[in-house]
Amino acid sequence: MTTQSLGLHSMELLVTYSRNPSLKLRNHLVEINAGLVRQVAHRISRQCSEPYEDLEQIGYLGLIRAIERFNPHQGCAFSSFAIPYIRGEMLHYLRDRGSIMRIPRRWQELYAKGKKLKKQLGMSLGHPPKEKEVAKALGISLQEWSECQLALQNRLLVSLDATVAQVNEGCLTFGETLPDPHCLTQRYWEEERLHLQKAMSQLEDKTKAAIECVFIKDLPRKEAAKEIGISPMTVTRHLQKGIEQLGLLMNPQAA
């Protein structure tokens, strides 16, 4: 599959996910867009002491949050939307661990020189210079200048209101990329609910009906027995059997 067709396929799945979220589809979207995480992890791992593998794992949390928040109808490319979330998750992780950034001396010198050049170019051009103009004046690529700035800026405390990306409706701040405990809790229970639904679908019909009547509808066992068409004793046996099966389906390690 070409890059273009892969992008179209990903967008189609994102549209489907926005209409009907599911754990299976979200995990598939993570697999398709894993390259974004690897790209950001590779860049940041060159500037800090944390292993690439750790940054990659943390980056997937940012990718998941981007998938859950992305609105495919805004006309924004998903990669442009997701990278700030992935990068923000990694930077948050690094700040929590107090990781010491390894800044090459050459980059320190380039950063200082670049700041001076920005002022000089601003005066000569009559407007703030673009980053590619600064990079050209320094005689380096735009990518290296971006990485140089990223490395030096990450040594400083960053305001939660600092802009990390431009989106259609305005600016995305660093604070907005940080994990929300309430959202994380909601996500956890949503995943558990989907996991339970999948496990319930694998039960026998009467076992599933017994669990739904007693634990979801909160019916007494006699009423549950009438609704299902079996005896109360059989309801009890189905409940015991169903609970054991759900325990094994939802926690395979227990098997």
Score class of each variant (00 low, 15 high):
3 T>V: 05
4 Q>Y: 07
5 S>F: 00
10 S>Y: 06
11 M>G: 02
12 E>C: 09
17 Y>P: 09
17 Y>A: 03
20 N>F: 10
23 L>N: 08
24 K>A: 12
25 L>W: 10
25 L>G: 12
26 R>Q: 14
28 H>L: 15
29 L>Q: 08
30 V>I: 14
32 I>V: 10
37 V>I: 12
38 R>C: 10
38 R>N: 08
40 V>W: 11
43 R>H: 02
44 I>K: 03
45 S>P: 11
56 E>Y: 15
58 I>A: 08
62 G>Y: 13
68 E>S: 07
70 F>P: 03
71 N>W: 01
73 H>Y: 13
82 A>W: 13
85 Y>H: 15
86 I>V: 15
86 I>K: 07
90 M>I: 03
91 L>D: 05
93 Y>H: 07
93 Y>E: 05
94 L>Q: 05
99 S>L: 04
102 R>F: 10
104 P>C: 09
105 R>L: 12
105 R>N: 10
114 G>T: 05
116 K>C: 01
120 Q>E: 03
122 G>R: 00
122 G>Y: 08
124 S>R: 04
125 L>F: 05
126 G>H: 07
126 G>K: 04
130 K>N: 14
131 E>M: 11
133 E>L: 01
133 E>D: 12
141 S>C: 04
142 L>D: 08
149 Q>E: 08
151 A>R: 02
152 L>Q: 15
153 Q>S: 06
154 N>I: 03
154 N>D: 09
156 L>G: 10
157 L>H: 07
157 L>T: 04
158 V>H: 00
161 D>W: 03
165 A>W: 00
171 C>A: 15
173 T>E: 13
179 P>E: 06
182 H>C: 10
183 C>V: 05
187 R>E: 11
189 W>K: 00
190 E>L: 13
190 E>Y: 12
201 S>M: 09
202 Q>T: 07
202 Q>S: 14
203 L>C: 04
204 E>Y: 00
204 E>G: 13
207 T>F: 06
211 I>F: 12
211 I>L: 15
212 E>W: 05
216 I>R: 00
217 K>R: 13
217 K>E: 14
219 L>V: 14
219 L>D: 06
226 K>D: 15
230 I>G: 04
232 P>D: 01
236 T>Q: 01
238 H>C: 10
238 H>S: 00
242 G>L: 10
244 E>D: 15
249 L>W: 10
249 L>V: 07
253 Q>F: 00
254 A>T: 00
254 A>F: 01
254 A>C: 05
255 A>N: 09
